[in-house]
Design a protein around this nucleic acid. Structure first.
Length: 424
RNA sequence: GCGGUUGUAGCUCAGUGGUUAGAGUGCCUGACUGUGACUCAGGAUGUCGGGGGUUCAAGUCCCCUCAGCCGCCCCA
């Protein structure tokens, strides 16, 4: 094998890859179309941004101490000495474009969706890739709790529309930056004795962003955190009221969720609402989607303060979850495979193929002058619903033989009735 | 980035340091003169992930490396 794909990347192929049924292109197409169909009914419009950006954009938005910035960025210098990074997430580029191109509709919140690559330089594994794909939504310009609920609702309904069951929304609020500074101090105080005899690097990391200690799996640290009051007890009255309204709006939409006060998210730009969507069948540690409100992001990258909320959905993880749940995805069928029974029938068969294609049918025929039996074999493997046979008898009578491949049943119909037969 | 584990035919996998590396399945051809799947007969296929080393001899032992998977970190 002279070459193999770069580590942590995937080929998305027309036929399933061994052990990787999720990377079949028709499943991806279905996922994209379903998403587009759903969110466009809510007024979202597509946006496409470049695959790479000035690295500063990500440092400013995600936060200098975030893991994405400190160790997971695919960055390089181009021939003009520009320091750029393959985008590690979708939100910052969309916000940059929004600011740069000023396409906001006056008087209306801006609703955007995207389907995009993301790149994260981590150790790959199942459901964890260096090149991954995200479907995302951004609702820019509303501070209403209904905006938060709209985003969460759409994420949840999307998974349902894909046939998924068992997805859970984990919901939390991390308040405003001021709340977080206060709560961070509380956390550090609470874990002071634990960190007293830890190494300085670990201590520094904790001090840089104490909130991230909350979702630790380290048993010692978990113990040290025991008895710490919930972040929800430290919210300002405004944040608390916002959180209550988000919950009420989700109840109204009948979206099930569970409050999970250890969901803190890895990016610095979130304010108030944060959430993740998980599914047991994918594994405890992998989330299907994550998002929240980021009222200060646009301000952080140099624009006017603009309240916004969004979500990113992991396409690989979505499809992996559907596989592990055994949820079948529709395979686009071929309408017919045309078979020429005799040499004389070949030109009419080619003509018929074109005729059917003009009418919108998906048809295939033999290219390699195969014998009749081999043509049927091709028909069988093509996945076509029927084989259409033209030979001397049919040409003389103006009929066509239709064989249903799954059952082997064969009937003869007038050629004039063929389109109506296939369309039924 | 850290720890563990795996890598042999298209696929699933056997293979005590000792001829020319096997099985099942799939694939190709034929029996089949107007019919795929079933049956029967025949056939092709490997850089044993890659590189180096030890040895009379390496798929097998050692080192390095690449890739997958599991756990950690983190997240989609």
């Amino acid at each position: 094998m002279p070459y193999q794909r770069p580590r942590g990347t995937n080929d998305i192929t027309p036929a399933p890859r061994p052990n990787e049924p999720a990377f079949e292109v028709h499943k991806w197409q279905h996922a994209e179309r379903t998403f587009q169909g759903l969110v466009e009914r809510y007024g979202y419009q597509e946006i496409r941004t470049p695959m790479f950006e000035d690295i500063e954009l990500f440092i400013r938005s995600s936060g200098e101490t975030s893991d994405i910035v400190t160790k997971e960025m695919y960055d390089f210098y181009d021939k003009g000495e520009r320091h750029v990074a393959l985008k590690p997430e979708g939100t910052a580029p969309v916000m940059r474009s929004y600011l740069e191109n000023k396409f906001a509709a006056p008087g209306l919140p801006t609703r955007l969706w995207y389907f995009s690559h993301s790149f994260r330089y981590g150790r790959p594994g199942k459901g964890r890739y260096r090149q991954l794909h995200q479907l995302g939504l951004e609702l820019i310009g509303s501070s209403s709790p209904r905006a938060d609920a709209e985003i969460i609702t759409l994420a949840y309904r999307y998974f349902s529309a894909m046939g998924m069951t068992g997805q859970k929304v984990l919901l939390n609020s991390i308040g405003k930056p001021a709340d977080r500074i206060l709560f961070g101090a509380v956390i550090l105080k609470h874990t002071e004795s634990y960190f007293a005899d830890r190494d300085p690097a670990e201590r520094a990391k904790a001090e840089a962003n104490p909130l991230r200690l909350l979702d630790t799996k380290d048993p010692g640290l978990r113990e040290a955190l025991a008895g710490l009051p919930s972040i929800l007890k430290h919210l300002s009255p405004e944040s608390l009221a916002h959180f209550e309204s988000v919950k009420a709006a989700l109840d109204e939409e009948e979206i099930p969720y569970q409050i999970s006060d250890d969901v803190v998210r890895g990016l610095d730009y979130y304010t108030d609402t944060v959430f993740e969507v998980v599914n047991e069948s994918l594994g405890e540690n992998l989330s299907l989607a994550g998002g929240g409100r980021y009222d200060h992001l646009i301000g952080q990258i140099g624009g006017p303060a603009t309240p916004s909320v969004g979500v990113g959905i992991g396409v690989e993880r979505l499809l992996l979850t559907l596989e592990s749940l055994g949820i079948a995805q529709p395979v686009p069928p071929l309408d017919a495979f045309l078979v020429a029974a005799t040499e004389e029938a070949k030109p009419p068969v080619r003509k018929l193929a074109n005729h059917l294609r003009e009418q919108g049918f998906k048809v295939l025929l033999d290219l390699d002058d195969k014998k009749l039996g081999a043509q049927f074999k091709s028909a069988d493997r093509s996945g076509a619903k029927v084989a259409l046979v033209l030979g001397d008898d049919e040409l003389a009578a103006g009929t066509i033989t239709v064989k249903t491949l799954a059952t082997g049943e064969q009937i003869s119909i007038p050629q004039a009735d063929l389109a109506a037969y296939l369309a039924r």
